[in-house]
């Protein structure tokens, strides 16, 4: 079981009452995200759809690597990994 952090963008942090970072545990991306959703139930709907897939306007990085279009779904998580959730913003 690895310990990792999930970092959230301002847009999502706003709907969680300002929570920008979660400490999570698990051995795969799916497990640590599930842990994050249990700790912040309102997070789930903003990150994944009803099938558990990342929403099209949301990105998830493990450290510096984008997980979108990755061949594997059960990406391993190691101690100290930083999971970054991003969402498209339109401001210009």
């Amino acid at each position: 079981m690895a310990s990792a952090t999930v970092e959230l963008p301002t847009m999502i942090a706003n709907v969680l009452g300002g929570v920008r970072r979660l400490e999570v545990n698990g051995t795969t991306l799916q497990e640590v995200l599930q842990d994050a959703f249990e700790k912040e139930p309102r997070l789930r709907v903003h990150v994944v759809d009803e099938h558990g897939e990342f929403r099209p306007h949301v990105l998830c990085f493990i450290n510096e690597d984008n997980t979108r279009w990755h061949e594997r779904r059960d990406l391993p998580i190691r101690d100290g990994d930083k999971i970054t959730i991003l969402q498209a913003v339109s401001g210009g």
Partner: peptide
């Protein structure tokens, strides 16, 4: 579109006018 295949639904985003910058 590879990055963000579709825009967010309106209730999941805010513009600068709404949220500030």
């Amino acid at each position: 579109r590879c990055l963000y295949p579709e825009p967010p639904p309106p209730h999941m985003t805010q513009s600068c006018a709404e949220a500030g910058v």
